[in-house]
Amino acid sequence: MRKYFYIFKTELMSNLNYVFNVLFSFIGYFIHILVFFYLWSYIYSDSSQVINGYSKSQMIWYVIITEVIWSVLAGRSFCRKISEDVKSGNITYNLNKPYSYIGYLLSSKMGEMSISFVLYFIGAIILGLIFLGSLPSINIIQFIIVLLSCILACIISAFLIIIIGLFAFYIEDTGPFYWVYSKVILIFGTIFPIEFFPGILKNILSYSPIYVVSYGPAKLFVNFSYIESIKILIAQVIYIIITYLLCLLIYKKGEKRLNVNGG
């Protein structure tokens, strides 16, 4: 375990050089939130109105949290990096080290994410306070549970993206898969809470990864309940196990197909 912690730590140290990049990318996040703030302000004719169980302020806090998880992940470059590693044969330099490649990917991704996670979270809370004036009613223990749930959501998302990236063992370009994934998450996970979708779709979504990678933590933040939080945390643990096993399966099968020419 120590080596994975070290991978995490080393990646974290290495990424401290990019703090300013994170601050700049926060501008993009800010614009997104601004758009949604005005959009929902327009839709909610008066601020006491409730749509599908969400008040205006809860709705906007929901988007603030889901957008944080999504932005912090920076999935596109992560996915591209894995695919490139597989295709170019760079993966070989990870294969002759005594660690598991999946473990390496996850711990280095966590190291990379942790800086932007902290900065984005602080920035997002400040942003929300400026726009909305107050936090949802949540105490410190509940807030810690929400944070934990956000971290688990990041781990599951990372595994999902590793799965897509590892498709490169079998196909030339993983870009389209990632594109579909990102759009699904955007529409069903980031912008609208699951309650906004019609019957069957709502049921499907509440068993899908979307429930654990974005809806869960955001819902907890805007409307905390201990029963809901236990449900979400258990679901997240189950999803971590499933996605990890899937990564492992694809990797083990793919590794045998590996062709590395030249160099």
């Binding site: 120590r2 080596k3 912690f5 070290y6 991978i7 080290k97 005594p98």
Partner: peptide, 8 residues
């Protein structure tokens, strides 16, 4: 130090 940790 990193490589040291990787190799336990």
């Amino acid at each position: 130090k990193f490589f040291g940790a990787v190799y336990d």
